[in-house]
Amino acid sequence: MLLQNIALVSHLLPLFLFFLFFRRNNERDIRVILFYCLYSFVNDIVITHLNTTEQYTLTFILLSAFTLIEYALFSYVLYINIKKAIFRKLILIISPFFIVFSIFQFLRSAGNGIDSISITVEYILLIIYCLFYFFDELIEPNATFIYATYKFWILVAILIYSTGTFFLFLQSSDLTPEEWNKWSIINHLCTIAKTAFFSVAVIMRKEPQENHFFDVDADHLFENHYKP
């Protein structure tokens, strides 16, 4: 219960840090992540309340909506950070299929527990998109270290959360409520890790300092040396 509460409150940490550091990183993807954190926080509170009042159908609707919105927000963040056009196109092509599939699953499941298949597919897609980003970085490395950019920490948060909770949501339909309560510790830990990484991204500066190798522009010095 304590871990669950920590995980719930941890959603507010990136928002708190964002305002604490005077909104020094106000990029689009950061704003999306902050919205996601706020949405997760509100969603978790509402779902906890609905669970205690045993309104399972509404919980299911909220969870299904959360899956869709989470996918939309994360895939948008990944989309704007991936450089290769082919990968961006793939995201654009796959996303409508996933939305249709998710709605279909929602209608088919008709209010039974967690829509584990949609969540599993969502996480597979997000892991693939993260691989796209890292592949991009491998073939076209930047002059700055990858971990010196806030984007990297957003991606790490998404990847760690998706991989960490992948098996939990995959098996969720096979777990008894006791087992679910027991194993949901994985979800809480991954949520804390995710918000911690988001917090790192939020407190990082927009543009990391470049590695200046030369003190002077040698080319410029050399340029007119022989001009008669």
């Binding site: 892991i127 890292f134 990858i146 990847l159 760690i160 960490g164 098996f167 098996q171 994985i186």
Partner: peptide, 27 residues
Amino acid sequence: VSLMLFFGTIGMLVLAIGMIIFIIFHQ
């Protein structure tokens, strides 16, 4: 199911962290 969940999660996390570390060192 519990065993699969446990080892599956550990395996996925190891793979993800391994990949991140590999990319950092490669870069």
